[in-house]
């Protein structure tokens, strides 16, 4: 702040005065933009570049062209990660209807409802590291609560996190817990802004229950749904913490997703294959880019209407 004001004061006043409208935004933007370019935009380009090299992080990088990408095509672990990413993307979206359901359930004016709403939101505030820990105890085959319940009904035991076919679903359920809370709060705010006159008018026309929800309420919740969709997609593709805490990618790598597999290849005991890791990251980035482009396009449509 200080250097902006002094530089404005020291330069010749006439010139400053004339160019005020161009100069001010440049100075205000400069620190933020430089920082962002340095730490976010350039690294993206560097990762693209690095994906054409073989590099262990220490010696000289060796240019290998498309070799890393060619290797990805035959990599079974990469394929598994891709499939798991697809599962995450699809199943994570359940957080949106679930959040809407809880929001509808809680959208009342009874005593203490404010406190209930914030307590329902709780899971989102705590760290995913803790969520992962709690859920891995919940699933534990020897003492986990899940198996206590199954045992009570005489259904035997289930080792969710040790079973290659179940493990990803088990972790997604853990992830859905905070994500549903997030969607719920979005919808609670959205429901608050629903036009009461429209609701009353629809009621007079005999609309109620599911019909009312579908034709009157949900269209008005569009902005909330859009944000819920954005944060859920991003959350699904960013999933890393839970996998790292709950299974560390196992058993036999069956719960890896691209973000975790990339980390494993580039920065863990499995070897420092930075170039190969970068290639995985590029694939993940391109998947994300599809969604980012869609988000930006939606925002652009909004902007055109604005000032």
């Amino acid at each position: 702040m200080a250097d902006i004001t002094t530089s404005l004061n020291e330069a010749p006043p006439g010139w400053i005065r004339r160019n005020r409208q161009t100069l001010a935004p440049v100075l205000f933007l400069l620190p933020g933009v430089l920082f962002f370019l340095f730490y976010v935009i350039f690294p993206i380009l560097q990762s693209f570049n690095l994906s054409f090299y073989r590099w262990d992080g220490l010696g000289e990088p060796v240019y290998v062209g498309m070799e890393n990408y060619a290797e990805l095509l035959d990599d079974r672990a990469f394929e598994v990660s891709m499939w798991n990413n697809a599962k995450w993307l699809l199943l994570y979206l359940l957080a949106i209807p679930a959040g809407l359901g809880i929001a509808l359930f809680l959208n009342q004016n009874v005593v203490g409802i404010r406190l209930y709403k914030s307590l329902f939101f709780f899971p989102f505030v705590i760290s995913q590291v803790v969520v992962g820990l709690v859920f891995s105890w919940f699933y534990d085959p020897t003492f986990g609560f899940l198996n206590q319940i199954l045992g009570f009904f005489g259904l035997g035991t289930l080792n969710v996190l040790g079973d290659p076919t179940l493990v990803t679903y088990g972790i997604i359920v853990a992830g859905l817990w905070p994500q549903t809370a997030y969607c719920m709060i979005l919808y609670l705010t959205g429901l608050n802004a629903v036009d009461p006159e429209q609701v009353e008018a629809a009621r007079l026309d005999g609309a109620k229950g599911f019909k009312m929800l579908w034709y009157v309420i949900i269209p008005q919740l569009r902005p909330a749904t859009f944000i819920a969709f954005v944060v859920t997609i991003i959350g699904a593709l960013r999933s890393f913490d839970l996998i790292s805490i709950m299974t560390n990618g196992g058993p036999f790598g069956s719960s890896r997703v691209l973000s975790f597999y990339m980390f494993e290849k580039a920065l863990s005991e499995y070897g420092f294959r930075m170039g190969y890791g970068a290639a995985i990251a590029v694939v993940l980035f391109l998947i994300m880019l599809l969604f980012i482009a869609y988000f930006l396009w939606s925002m652009y449509q909004e902007e055109k209407g604005g000032r």
Binding site: L50, M262, M288
Partner: peptide, 13 residues
Amino acid sequence: AGNFVPFQILMVP
């Protein structure tokens, strides 16, 4: 857009 990017594309650099 930068805010939506996956962390992994930034990790190594």
